[in-house]
Design a protein around this nucleic acid. Sequence first.
DNA 1: CTGTTAGCGCGTTCAG
DNA 2: CTGAACGCGCTAACAG
Lengths: 347, 347
Amino acid sequence: MAPAEHPRMSDVAERAGVSLSTVSRALRGAPGVAPAVRENVLRAAAELSYVVSRGASSLVTGRTGRIAVLVPFLQPWFFGVALAGMNTRLRAAELDMLVYQVGDVEELDGYVRSLPLRSNVDCVVAVSLDLDEGEIKQLDELGLPVVFCSQRVEGRPSVFIDNTGAARGATQHLLNLGHTRIAYIHTRDQTGFSWSSQERRRGYEQAMAEAGAEPFVVSERPGHDGGALAMGRLLSVSHPPTAVFAESDDVAMGALRVLRRSRLEIPEAISVIGFDGSDFAELLDLTTVAQPVFEMGVRAAELAADIVETGRPSTAQVELPTTLLVRQSTAAPRRSRNLTVRAAPHS
Amino acid sequence: MAPAEHPRMSDVAERAGVSLSTVSRALRGAPGVAPAVRENVLRAAAELSYVVSRGASSLVTGRTGRIAVLVPFLQPWFFGVALAGMNTRLRAAELDMLVYQVGDVEELDGYVRSLPLRSNVDCVVAVSLDLDEGEIKQLDELGLPVVFCSQRVEGRPSVFIDNTGAARGATQHLLNLGHTRIAYIHTRDQTGFSWSSQERRRGYEQAMAEAGAEPFVVSERPGHDGGALAMGRLLSVSHPPTAVFAESDDVAMGALRVLRRSRLEIPEAISVIGFDGSDFAELLDLTTVAQPVFEMGVRAAELAADIVETGRPSTAQVELPTTLLVRQSTAAPRRSRNLTVRAAPHS
DNA sequence: CTGTTAGCGCGTTCAG
DNA sequence: CTGAACGCGCTAACAG
């Protein structure tokens, strides 16, 4: 490793028979270099398989060519897709992507305090961090521009969907099918990351109110487990719902598992709708509200790239559309249906 | 942005009333600083919310404090979990994680040629890239140490599982249950990333050979779709298998979808086993071979951190254990079972 | 159009 | 134990 010292710019200059600054200009595509000379330099660089050291150049330009992406989790489908979207767009902008998992607000605080980002990246993209105003202000202490992805923040560059409207639409779908006893599964954990969840809940409540139906919200912890627990609770009340709207596909899948194990047919016994449009929803024929996650990543990266390239702050608000994907997990309720219809002889 | 210029080390020095180099030593935890002085410096730095510029320091130390992670995909469960594992361990080592998606060998080639990594990271971790020798050699041209995660490479630091052994165990499980007509679903695409797939297939074939059973391999494209297509083919032969071993949970899920839509009960009509131990396998009660993906990430990051810290190349081979998770998708075959038993009156 | 001269912010000698 | 000089590899003003 050590024997093969990397070539420096002066090596290229020597080989091409020009000066250092000419090499710099040529490699950078800066104007003011004769085409022939430029070609010479490029060839010399290629022959030495030379690459400019970003560290050195950013020391003088002040730009690092890197952006940081902050995500609350790395594992869920959503974040993989979002990162893939960003990756695509960032590559086009020749920006590298630093990924940090910030599990909770406390950790975010730690990050901001230790500031490992400052002078290390040009911009940070916060994905689904669902921060409140105070936390956003904290991020400012980094002294870096911040782009919000999957969260709408007024006055800040952000890419988002209309959670409330989409949730209202999903609820309306169930109402239109003839359901009236529609439950909403909502999650919340201690860390306090739950903005979009709140917005979706609001959309559900609006639609229910407009229809004159009684809202019925159960709150559990996030993830499959929460969905399973919530479904268990819903199946234990005296008058169970005929349809369930889960805050996310993840949560819906937990609910589906419980229904399957209870031998309750979907959608005959109960309709289920999720949110996200994950590919697992497709596998399970789950009706869901799809959001364009990949494109959200792309657009967020685009905003970041713009900010880095122009050096100007931005307040762009990018709202992306959602799509209701109706599949086999939702259908009209059976007339005067009762969940116990199969098991109860006295039906 | 511009008004809030970041403080420099000299600012800290001035505030603490010491010289530049003393600040450097103090901040770095280097020996040769009086405790009282160090504390002073630390306080001054905190008050200015100062952080050393990695760019500047790496210019002189030659270390960037960054590692690059190369993944073929960002979206699948596997990679999210692996990245999460790395993230954990890298944070402990105070290394930042640059993530690059390299979809196929061609793209990898592009990366290696444009060398955006050189002098930009200290080490690269290749996750599940399933490279052949030539491609590995190509990576060497980066002039950087490479750690392999989820691929065994002799003489190189690598973290992996025993794919062959695990696949043999899974096949043995089915054989022990009494199955003899066991199919294997194998995937392959044009890009040529398929090492572990080959290894698993070999394990399957070994177990079948030992049992004197006839191997039956169908090959399709990767992902859910491939699994679905493969299952379709398996259901269309004259004597369908009573059990299916899918190369991965992803593929198994595609197969499951086809079975569900065909109204074939699992495991009554057909047993299915996957590979990976994804949490979706759990949701679907899919028997699977679990691999410790998170830990693979952790261990790979550890190898990388070691190499960076010691500066010495490594040839560590870390083999991690797999676990067969028996769930409800596998069971003994029905005596003289026939897939058409329910539909065929002449049974 | 090209070369020369200064630093960018820090770590590392080496004297004190 | 501390400070002053030098240089890491590169870009940005200038001068030619």
